[in-house]
Amino acid sequence: MSRLSPGAVVRVREDYPPGHIRTPIYLRGKQGVVERHFGAFGNPETLAYNLPGPKKDLYKVRFRAADLWPDYQGSPKDTVEADLYDHWLEASA
């Protein structure tokens, strides 16, 4: 059972650690909605160093483009989706 279900409102952690991170900077601290759960995948943050580690749940998270870019030119319905690992997502109100 995954921690988050489709429809869950989440916020991406606003952290900036060094290392091999697959959570793009432009999404850090942003709020989105879980679109689907892909299953558990190897964590790139350890695999990049050829180290073992527990798998992490991977989610597709949908963000409103207007929430990402204050000057967004386009439809309010436009979205950006990214695949993010569980430990980068915090449940949000």
Partner: peptide, 11 residues
């Protein structure tokens, strides 16, 4: 609506 998919992981 435009939906941009950023392939950040194993998908």
């Amino acid at each position: 609506a435009v939906r941009v998919h950023d392939s950040t992981a194993d998908i």
